[in-house]
Amino acid sequence: MAEYERSRTMPAQPEQVFDQAANVAQFDSWLPDELHVDAEEPPAVTVHEAGSGQDLPALLRSQPDQMRLEWGTREQGSYTGWLQVAGIGSGTSEVTVHLSFFEGGHDPGERAVYEALDGSLRRLEEQVRMRVEHTAG
């Protein structure tokens, strides 16, 4: 089993960050380019991996009271992950994303995972900034 985790500080209240992160209709704006999520009947979703062309049945659970998202593959149990938002004061938040791969065939490797996590968190921060600026202006 391989586990990866990355965190990033974002300039917004945790509720604003979580609302942006949990908006399934806008996942494509911050998830890695090769992943696309199609919400069926939540918590059931389908994740399309552009690189492999596969559609994987998955589950996505949103826990707004805990500002946490959890996901994982449904049938083969090859990977799981979670995103947690925490307020750190002064109108800022920390977002942590954790991935666990249970089968080597689904683990793209340390470098690829960290690049994808860093890129996703950067794009999520951009989305949060736009939302906060739009709400304030």
Score class of each variant (00 low, 15 high):
residue 1 M to H: 12
residue 2 A to G: 11
residue 2 A to E: 09
residue 2 A to D: 10
residue 3 E to T: 12
residue 4 Y to I: 02
residue 4 Y to C: 02
residue 4 Y to R: 01
residue 7 S to E: 06
residue 8 R to L: 10
residue 9 T to M: 13
residue 9 T to P: 06
residue 9 T to Y: 05
residue 9 T to A: 14
residue 10 M to I: 10
residue 10 M to Q: 01
residue 12 A to C: 01
residue 12 A to W: 01
residue 13 Q to M: 14
residue 13 Q to P: 11
residue 14 P to S: 11
residue 14 P to K: 04
residue 14 P to Q: 08
residue 15 E to K: 08
residue 17 V to W: 13
residue 17 V to P: 03
residue 18 F to C: 02
residue 19 D to H: 03
residue 21 A to M: 15
residue 21 A to R: 14
residue 21 A to C: 04
residue 22 A to V: 02
residue 25 A to M: 06
residue 26 Q to N: 12
residue 27 F to W: 11
residue 28 D to G: 12
residue 29 S to Q: 11
residue 29 S to H: 12
residue 29 S to R: 11
residue 30 W to I: 02
residue 32 P to S: 00
residue 33 D to W: 15
residue 34 E to S: 15
residue 34 E to V: 12
residue 35 L to M: 09
residue 35 L to F: 07
residue 36 H to M: 11
residue 36 H to R: 15
residue 36 H to Y: 11
residue 37 V to H: 02
residue 38 D to S: 13
residue 40 E to Y: 08
residue 40 E to P: 05
residue 42 P to S: 08
residue 42 P to E: 10
residue 43 P to H: 08
residue 44 A to L: 14
residue 44 A to H: 09
residue 45 V to R: 14
residue 46 T to Y: 13
residue 47 V to R: 01
residue 48 H to F: 14
residue 48 H to A: 10
residue 49 E to D: 09
residue 50 A to S: 12
residue 50 A to Y: 10
residue 51 G to D: 15
residue 52 S to C: 05
residue 53 G to H: 00
residue 54 Q to C: 11
residue 54 Q to D: 15
residue 55 D to P: 12
residue 57 P to V: 04
residue 58 A to L: 03
residue 59 L to N: 14
residue 59 L to H: 10
residue 60 L to M: 09
residue 62 S to F: 12
residue 63 Q to A: 13
residue 64 P to N: 01
residue 64 P to D: 00
residue 65 D to N: 11
residue 66 Q to T: 07
residue 66 Q to N: 02
residue 67 M to G: 06
residue 67 M to P: 05
residue 68 R to H: 05
residue 70 E to C: 07
residue 71 W to P: 06
residue 71 W to A: 01
residue 71 W to H: 03
residue 72 G to V: 02
residue 72 G to A: 02
residue 72 G to K: 02
residue 73 T to C: 06
residue 73 T to M: 10
residue 75 E to N: 13
residue 75 E to F: 03
residue 75 E to T: 08
residue 75 E to W: 04
residue 76 Q to K: 08
residue 76 Q to W: 12
residue 76 Q to N: 12
residue 76 Q to T: 07
residue 77 G to I: 00
residue 79 Y to M: 06
residue 80 T to V: 07
residue 80 T to K: 06
residue 84 Q to W: 03
residue 84 Q to S: 07
residue 85 V to S: 02
residue 88 I to M: 09
residue 88 I to A: 02
residue 91 G to I: 01
residue 93 S to Q: 00
residue 94 E to F: 04
residue 94 E to A: 05
residue 94 E to W: 04
residue 95 V to K: 14
residue 95 V to T: 12
residue 99 L to W: 08
residue 99 L to S: 07
residue 99 L to D: 04
residue 100 S to T: 08
residue 101 F to K: 00
residue 103 E to T: 15
residue 103 E to N: 10
residue 104 G to M: 03
residue 106 H to V: 15
residue 107 D to H: 04
residue 110 E to Y: 04
residue 111 R to Q: 14
residue 112 A to M: 13
residue 112 A to Q: 14
residue 113 V to K: 02
residue 113 V to S: 07
residue 114 Y to T: 15
residue 119 G to S: 00
residue 119 G to L: 00
residue 120 S to R: 00
residue 121 L to A: 06
residue 121 L to M: 07
residue 123 R to G: 13
residue 124 L to D: 03
residue 124 L to P: 04
residue 124 L to M: 03
residue 125 E to V: 09
residue 127 Q to A: 15
residue 130 M to N: 12
residue 132 V to Y: 02
residue 132 V to I: 10
residue 133 E to S: 08
residue 133 E to F: 09
residue 137 G to Y: 11
